[in-house]
Structure formats: structure tokens, C-alpha cells
């Protein structure tokens, strides 16, 4: 029997379809979810409260990434950042940044659109803005651009600032397992590597976690 699992973020929704132990992953815009005629077994995410069962995002992340024992697992999405750390398979520490959420993916997407910059063309830079929150960051970008800095460089500096924030937010670990949409942003990944070792987990850790929760419940 086919089972569906949903991680509905603010902008993007990640779906895992499991049929005869075969897994199929897909991503759609969250606003298009309403057009799907699918019943989700378990769902998570800011926009995911319409599945049969809703699961907490950090719990979903922990079930998806428990095997990564030697570093911090960081999920960075369009709205917020959350991380978890295991030691010998046991939960050790976590945090969830819900205050400066504007300093994450959604802000970068808006900046790219606003300045008509392609994400693939961003070149990582060691220079960074001190991005305590996205709004302060925006002000610095606008100041720099009005002083002649190219939008590409200004956005790259903003991204390095976010990478530095992520590194500090996760308590400066030696290794970060990165989950979420930022895995596909090469500039961000390279910027984060300026501070620590980075292993990419892709966008589907949370739906993997939901599936693992489902398996543990149906055993």
C-alpha cells in the first residue's frame, strides 16, 4: 500500500512516497499542496498541519538523522534554523531559532529576485556582514550596493554572515551535517566550510524521519 509523508515548509514542501519499500522523493511549492489529492500518513513543518498525524519538526529531524553521531545536524530552511546533536545514539543537545527567522532562506530568495541575481553565479567570499537579523542585513546590503558594490558580492557577503551565524548558533562544532534547502545553495555551503567541516544530507531528512517514526509505530 502506498504511504505518503510530508514536510511542508513555508515556501517548499518535500514529499516522500513509499510503495513496496521503494522510495520516491519530490518537492513542490507549498502553495500548490492544496491541489494534491493525497492523504499524508504523517506530516511536519510550519505549513504541514493537515496530515492525519502531525509531528514536531525537531523530532522528525532527530528520527531522520540519528545515525550521524559525530557532529551537529543542522536543518536550515526558508524560515528558521534548528539543530540537534546525538552522543552514542542518545539525544544530547538542540536548539531552534525562531526569532531571527528572516535571516534565512526566504530572505535570500527575496534578495536574489529583487536584485535579479542567479544563485548559481554567486561566488563565496570570506567577507561577511554581521547578520544579527535579516532586516539589519538588508540595510547593509543596500548601503554597500549604493556605494558601488555589486549585488552579487553583497549577497555573497550576506550569505557568509548567515553561515557564520549558523556556525555560532550550533555552538561552533567541528562538523555540521547540513539538511534542508540550503544544501543546494553552493555559495552557502562553501561559506559554511570556511568555519567547519560540512556534510550534505539533502532536503529530505525530515520526511525520512517521519517514515522512521511510522516504521517504529507500526512494528
Amino acid at each position: 500500500m502506498t504511504k505518503y509523508f510530508l514536510d511542508a515548509g513555508t515556501t517548499w514542501s518535500k514529499i516522500l512516497k513509499v510503495e513496496e519499500n521503494e522510495k520516491e522523493y519530490s518537492v513542490i511549492k507549498t502553495r500548490d499542496l492544496k491541489n494534491l489529492n493525497i492523504e499524508f500518513e504523517i506530516s511536519t513543518g510550519h505549513s504541514g498541519k493537515f496530515g492525519k498525524n502531525y509531528e514536531n519538526e525537531v523530532v522528525a529531524l532527530s528520527y531522520g538523522a540519528k545515525r550521524y553521531n559525530d557532529g551537529v545536524i543542522l536543518d536550515l530552511g526558508s524560515r528558521d534554523a534548528k539543530w540537534i546533536k546525538f552522543n552514542d545514539g542518545k539525544f544530547q543537545d538542540m536548539d531552534w531559532n525562531n526569532n531571527c527567522a528572516s535571516a534565512t532562506g526566504a530572505t535570500i530568495e527575496m534578495l536574489l529576485k529583487f536584485y535579479d541575481v542567479e544563485v548559481e553565479k554567486l561566488i563565496p567570499t570570506k567577507e561577511k556582514y554581521s547578520v544579527t537579523c535579516g532586516i539589519f542585513g538588508l540595510e547593509k546590503i543596500m548601503d554597500d550596493i549604493s556605494n558601488g558594490v555589486s549585488p552579487n558580492l553583497a549577497i555573497s557577503k550576506f550569505i557568509t554572515g548567515i553561515a557564520y551565524n549558523a556556525y555560532n548558533f550550533t555552538k561552533k562544532p567541528n562538523k555540521i551535517y547540513l539538511s534542508g534547502g540550503f544544501c543546494e545553495n553552493k555559495c552557502f555551503v562553501e561559506s559554511l566550510k570556511l568555519f567547519t567541516e560540512v556534510v550534505l544530507l539533502g532536503r529530505y531528512m525530515l520526511v525520512e524521519g517521519l517514515y522512521n517514526i511510522y516504521l517504529s509505530q507500526t512494528k
Partner: peptide, 24 residues
């Protein structure tokens, strides 16, 4: 788990407490 909260709790703050109590 350290929680610094202003007026009312956001969904994320509540979820953070919930996750901590379940996973710790």
C-alpha cells in the same frame, strides 16, 4: 533547555519545548 520568551509563545518555542521534553 534555555528559553527566553517575550509576551506570548510562538509555535516554534512551543515545539522546541515539546521536542526537548520528548527527546532529552
Amino acid at each position: 533547555l534555555y528559553i527566553d520568551m517575550d509576551g506570548f509563545s510562538s509555535n516554534s518555542t512551543r515545539a522546541k519545548i515539546e521536542a526537548f521534553l520528548r527527546l532529552r
